[in-house]
Design a protein around this nucleic acid. Sequence first.
DNA 1: ATGACTATTGTTAACGTGTGCATAACATGG
DNA 2: CCATGTTATGCACACGTTAACAATAGTCAT
Lengths: 339, 339
Amino acid sequence: MSVTIKDIARLAGVSHTTVSRALNDSPLINEKTKDRIRAIAEEMDYTPNFSAKSLVLDRSYNLGLFFTTLSKGTSAGFFYDAIRGVNSVIQDRYQLIVKGIDDYTSFHSITRKSFDGIIVVSQSDEDQPLIDHAADKGIPLVVLNRPVDTVGVLNVLSDEEQGAFQATSYLIRQGHRNMALIEGRVGFKSAQNRKEGFERALAHHGITLKPSHRFPGLYDLESGYKAMQQFLMLEDRPTAVFCCNDEMALGAMKAISEAGLQVPGDISVIGFDDTVFAAYVTPALTTVRRPIEQISKEGAIRLLGNIENKQYATEQVLLKTELIVRESVHPLQLTGEEG
Amino acid sequence: MSVTIKDIARLAGVSHTTVSRALNDSPLINEKTKDRIRAIAEEMDYTPNFSAKSLVLDRSYNLGLFFTTLSKGTSAGFFYDAIRGVNSVIQDRYQLIVKGIDDYTSFHSITRKSFDGIIVVSQSDEDQPLIDHAADKGIPLVVLNRPVDTVGVLNVLSDEEQGAFQATSYLIRQGHRNMALIEGRVGFKSAQNRKEGFERALAHHGITLKPSHRFPGLYDLESGYKAMQQFLMLEDRPTAVFCCNDEMALGAMKAISEAGLQVPGDISVIGFDDTVFAAYVTPALTTVRRPIEQISKEGAIRLLGNIENKQYATEQVLLKTELIVRESVHPLQLTGEEG
DNA sequence: ATGACTATTGTTAACGTGTGCATAACATGG
DNA sequence: CCATGTTATGCACACGTTAACAATAGTCAT
């Protein structure tokens, strides 16, 4: 079996208590004794048993990273960036446990004992029961990516409504009036925020959107493709399409080129997220950058602070989005009565 | 504090042993007693303390999912598919702990106590020390995506050499002779396998590749772009380019279109992986599909079997790749002396 | 009625670690 | 020389769970 502090104690001719203290660098122990014990531990290749530590210290050394779902509707880039961001912060102090919220049939097993803290990358209101559960159990908690007002819960996100507003305003400044909207997945908060930013920009300029010019997408390539096919059959075909993410924008561009039309010559396309491939499709996609990795880093840092200081600071951190202008939007020649 | 079996025992008027047995559905306990205890446990919202269980049962309920790196060189789609595949298998029996191997400064903390099993999604020979360490410690282990011959280690992967061979043969059948190769990241086994498949196909047809017609890529969009820029400056510009993954293929296509040339009219491009966006770029990318999600599922299933049956079956499972023909390869008019 | 057997429950120790309290050795000050 | 303080260590218990080994009561066959 594996080496324990008792084995070390026997070899060093001290009590296991002394070994425990020595290895935890307690000031109670003589420096020479510490060194001797450390040397023996090293030589015996001692590794602390984390189950035992957890039991007595009441800490699991686990951090939960929960996504709304691991199956559909989460884009790979988003997922990857989020994990990378968190991982870069926690180093080897914690184990990172990745879960899909929709994998749980019951939250019963989620307790203070099993998680020292939880990071919820929330895409939907439907995550609220989990968030409430965790908050209720008193587990330190940070919610990323979606605004939340549960008390005692940290919240880090980007201002997507504002980003969509900016992007749409840009389309309008380029002369577009007849626009279309490919929405995100129903129930996803981001879908709603982006839609609202889009609509606010239209309203701001007194433009109205016909029901025929909106389509409920699923955040995937295929739904963007299908949406665009619909738009292409309209009599008053839009001159510009706002897509609620880059994947759908790519799908839309595919439909346009298959119809023998050009982006942006015939139709302008704008995306959201600034996925890695956005700069490399042809034409390069104009889109809104959202600092996912930064959000998750920021969230992880604050969560760790919260866990270790035991001070529950509720605050919402709002990071800026940024419009990245590339080639997929074309200025429109205005036909006359323009103000 | 939280409810323990002793609390339940007190309320039920039995010993805590009886409660433990009842909740584990031991045949030793009277059915009526079991029901009564279960009811009380339910009502008190009892959750077992996993640290305590782990300590006495010598099982951590943790499964490690290790990637070569979480920083650079792992594509988002690959990462996402791998996690999804494993996650779909383990359900709620284990916690999935995601790690980058290059995050470790020492493997010291990786023991039988901390992981019931480990899945290594290995992209490089440099992972070997970790694999050896885990095998040495007797941790049930499965290595995905890279061939490995350590004894007692499960191994699931796809035959990438064969996939590359097929894809290249297809290019040759379409009449291409002047080809170029954008290689994968140095040190990544997949890069080597794909290159070898490519070279075998060339050798099979007596075609030689000039040094100027190969470029070491990094598996990312940018390196594909740069590689293609190099090729475009050559006097004997290739008519077809084999890219070791789809990202680099997309980068290459970008460079081609920026140079005012057409894919596949002027230059044919072929990729590898069949990433989600491959079908949606324009032109749609011809590529080799690799069943990543299936590989990870298969690996996870076998690993769980191994953990639970304690039978160490060493076997290598090789899954097939598949050539997906789309639009990015054009048949070449042959100029005469062809056999 | 006695011993053996079965069904059910309890007693006690164990897993590996950390900690409050006691203890011993030794120094310090008056 | 004694009271007090300081430093270094050990003892015993605790954390929540499982399991080997009693123990008890009831049943059955002889």
